[in-house]
Design a protein around this nucleic acid. Structure first.
Lengths: 228, 228
DNA sequence: ACAAAAGTGTTCACTATACACCCATGC
DNA sequence: GCATGGGTGTATAGTGAACACTTTTGT
């Protein structure tokens, strides 16, 4: 390490906020209200402030730009992007974060954003501003891996949920169909993943489903294997 | 995103360089030659320069501070650390990188480093400078996970290696004993992990072992499960 | 001959999958 | 009753751990 920095950069956080709506995986995007890329879709995010750590900044920006707050911040780093030419404004590095939320009321546009809305995660190229296409792909891949090894999927659900709702999350994120019977046994068998509340919930038609809450487990052992 | 950065920070890379020597997992540390923390052990690293991306900087710093170069840079990001008070010199963020190398000749001290040497990775607190204790723990954990899912372990070995050498890597990094027979079958059975060269190598005593090279696989399917 | 290390075959327990089946509700 | 979705039981195939055993070298 050298005593004096040779270069200072702007340091930003960007957020890939994922949810499952109507069995589809969707991402929260904003329409940029300022240059550069005014009018283009982009991930929410912004610059760090004095005295702020990365997570503080991510939580704050999410609230400012989309009105989403108060959510138990299920936030983790994806990676940092710092290519010299990634931002036309100059030398700016961004630390990408992954956030997983249950289906929520429509977001509200905030500062510097002309609009905020959910968009389905498509395979193709959504044409986002900056290098946000790359960031989105990396974050979705990380979310898929996390579902295998951590109880993260429960974060996509409201605090109380049924096994079928949890299964819908896995099917949406992985893009595969899972056997409802075997899935039920697997997750209820994994210690600490979900705990029953004792209550029941009636679907539109059919037998009522038991209601569960998130369990204390922090890692899944053994992991849920994603079908090849 | 806001048009003008509210804060600029010094951006550094730090390197957790791991190797396996004599069946022990070791990390490359430097003795700091300048303040702050002069004389304390630390991870090699340094600031980004104009026009450099993160990987460029990591490769350059490794060469400058330890004399290690020309190695196929098996380098990946761990995460970014940006707590406001993590560096007494001011607001400095660092992107930690993980590097995996085969056993090499002793490193040479370079600029700003009074010395560079391998140290065993201990469970306790090595008392490194800055927040490097935390970074080291995170990086080792990432290395352990990578061994399960990627052919990364082969990077710990020289270009040509025996299955027993590869097994020694897993045992050192995971800190467990593995069954030589089952391990042999597993890795030779995984498509693309290792490819036989046809040559043999005689150990000090005993039957000669077949020599292998790294295969083309980039992910292990199915993953090698680490014993609980 | 013997020790030591490489590599193979076989057994056994455990796990995942597929799917038949039963249960509880709305209409 | 019947359709619909929730949940359980069970047969079967596949996988991983344990370990006896054979092979090939140095001394």
């Amino acid at each position: 390490m050298i005593a004096r920095p040779h270069l200072t950069v702007g340091l930003a956080v960007d957020l890939v906020v994922l949810t499952v709506r109507d069995t589809r995986l969707e991402v929260l995007l904003i329409e940029r209200g300022v240059e550069p890329f005014r009018g283009r879709l982009a991930l929410p995010g912004g610059f760090l402030r004095e005295g702020e750590d990365l997570l503080d900044a991510a939580v704050r920006e999410l609230a400012e730009e989309t009105g989403i707050r108060g959510i138990d911040p299920c936030l983790e780093q994806v990676r940092t992007y710092a290519a010299p030419d990634r931002d036309p404004r100059g030398r700016i590095a961004t630390v990408a974060h992954l956030a997983i939320l249950p289906d929520l009321p429509a977001p509200t546009a905030g500062t510097d954003a002309a609009g905020a809305r959910w968009e389905p995660v498509r395979a193709g190229s959504p044409g986002l501003a900056f290098d946000h296409d790359t960031i989105l792909v990396d974050a979705v891949e990380q979310a898929r891996r996390r579902l295998e090894n951590t109880p993260l999927a429960a974060q996509f659900c409201r605090p109380e949920f049924t096994i079928a709702e949890l299964r819908a999350v896995y099917e949406a994120v992985w893009g595969v169909a899972l056997d409802p019977r075997n899935f039920h046994r697997k997750v209820t068998g994994l210690p600490g993943f979900v705990v029953p509340t004792g209550e029941m919930r009636s679907p539109h038609t059919g037998r009522p489903a038991a209601v569960y809450r998130r369990g204390p487990a922090t890692a899944l052992n053994p992991p849920l294997q994603r079908p090849a």
